[in-house]
Computed example of a mutant assay.
Amino acid sequence: MADDKSKRDFRDRVSGGEDYEVAYFARKFQLTIPEARALIAKHGNDRETLEREATALAKS
């Protein structure tokens, strides 16, 4: 069954309290752990927002 993108839940979030999630996010965008945590602190834990901001950070 295909995912229903209109239904969003906790899986669309990056849990800043889970070290493995922060580490995965940091590796995915070639960030340091402190940089990833700073993005989460500044922008919240919405995955789409964080991925957009991490991509912008990598380009700068």
Rank of each mutant, 00 (worst) to 15 (best):
D4M: 00
E53T: 01
K42Y: 01
R52P: 06
D46A: 14
F10S: 11
S15P: 05
A54N: 06
K59Q: 15
A41Q: 14
S15R: 11
K5E: 11
K28C: 02
G17I: 08
L57P: 01
A58Y: 11
L39Y: 03
M1E: 09
R27A: 12
L50W: 00
V14Y: 05
D46P: 01
A58F: 10
N45H: 06
R52Y: 11
E18T: 05
T55Y: 02
A36N: 03
E18K: 15
I33Y: 09
D19I: 04
R47Q: 04
V22E: 02
L39S: 08
A54S: 05
S6H: 07
L50Q: 00
D3I: 14
T55R: 15
F25M: 05
K28Q: 13
R27T: 10
A23Q: 15
R8D: 01
K7L: 13
F10A: 14
I33L: 14
R11Q: 05
M1I: 07
T32H: 13
F29T: 09
A58H: 10
N45D: 13
Y24I: 11
T32F: 07
D12G: 11
E18L: 12
L39H: 04
Q30V: 12
V22F: 03
T32Q: 07
Y20A: 12
Q30L: 14
T55C: 04
F10K: 15
A2T: 14
S60G: 15
L50E: 01
D46W: 09
A56V: 08
G44H: 10
K7H: 05
A26L: 08
V22M: 04
F29P: 04
D46V: 12
S6W: 08
V22N: 03
K59W: 09
Y24W: 15
R47V: 09
F10C: 07
P34I: 03
V22I: 13
L57D: 03
A2N: 07
A2V: 11
R47C: 00
A58W: 04
D9M: 09
D19K: 08
R27Q: 14
E48P: 10
R13N: 12
L57Q: 03
D19T: 09
S60A: 15
A54G: 02
G44N: 08
V22P: 01
